[in-house]
């Protein structure tokens, strides 16, 4: 029934985190790893590719918000272990940036809780990304798609048992 939340500059080892959840003998473990993308590749052709990504956060508040998000996931799904690791500082494309891992008796809870944790982390936890590309720095804007992904959980909560679309 452990929760592990860490914000750190250091990289993390997926196998170590997986093994830590495995000792509780769950029926399922879902792990999600986010990697630094070359953002600019998705957008305007001809824009410089990303050299580095710098992550800023609000020490103390970030950990508190992540704990609240994990509590909310635990209220919704019967999960066993939850691990949330998020890196800060300067990272390069391809680097690991975030890990969410959830163990549960069955896969469905683990899949859904992992997805929920990522959606809420992206829209609620106090992290900010700055891109350095071709010698220019710019802060990343929140994507509408991330907002939409998070709001689907609010709709399902408000929907109740009748399954009505809101």
């Amino acid at each position: 029934m452990d929760t592990l939340i860490r914000v750190q500059e250091a990289d993390f080892d997926l196998q170590t985190e997986y093994d830590r959840l495995r000792v509780d003998n769950p029926g399922a473990i879902v792990t999600f790893t986010g990697l630094v993308r070359d953002f600019n590749r998705d957008h305007v052709a001809g824009s410089a590719s990303v050299d580095t990504l710098t992550l800023q956060h609000y020490p103390g508040m970030t950990e508190k918000l992540l704990a609240e998000i994990v509590d909310e996931a635990r209220e919704r799904w019967s999960v066993i272990g939850v691990t949330v690791l998020h890196r800060v500082g300067t990272l390069a494309p391809g680097d690991q940036i975030v890990l969410v891992a959830v163990s549960a008796a069955h896969r469905q809870e683990a899949f859904e809780a992992t997805s929920f944790l990522m959606d809420y982390l992206k829209t609620r936890a106090t992290f900010w990304k700055k891109v350095n590309a071709g010698g220019e720095e710019s802060w990343v804007d929140m994507h509408q798609a991330d907002r939409a992904a998070a709001s689907r959980w609010e709709a399902s909560e408000a929907g109740g048992d009748d399954g009505a679309d809101i």
């Binding site: 986010g34 956060h57 975030v98 992206k122 936890a125 106090t126 992290f127 900010w128 990343v140 991330d146």
Partner: peptide, 10 residues
């Protein structure tokens, strides 16, 4: 007191 623009972690 902290002023927070929209977050962009993950």
């Amino acid at each position: 007191v902290a002023f927070l623009p929209p977050v962009t972690g993950g």
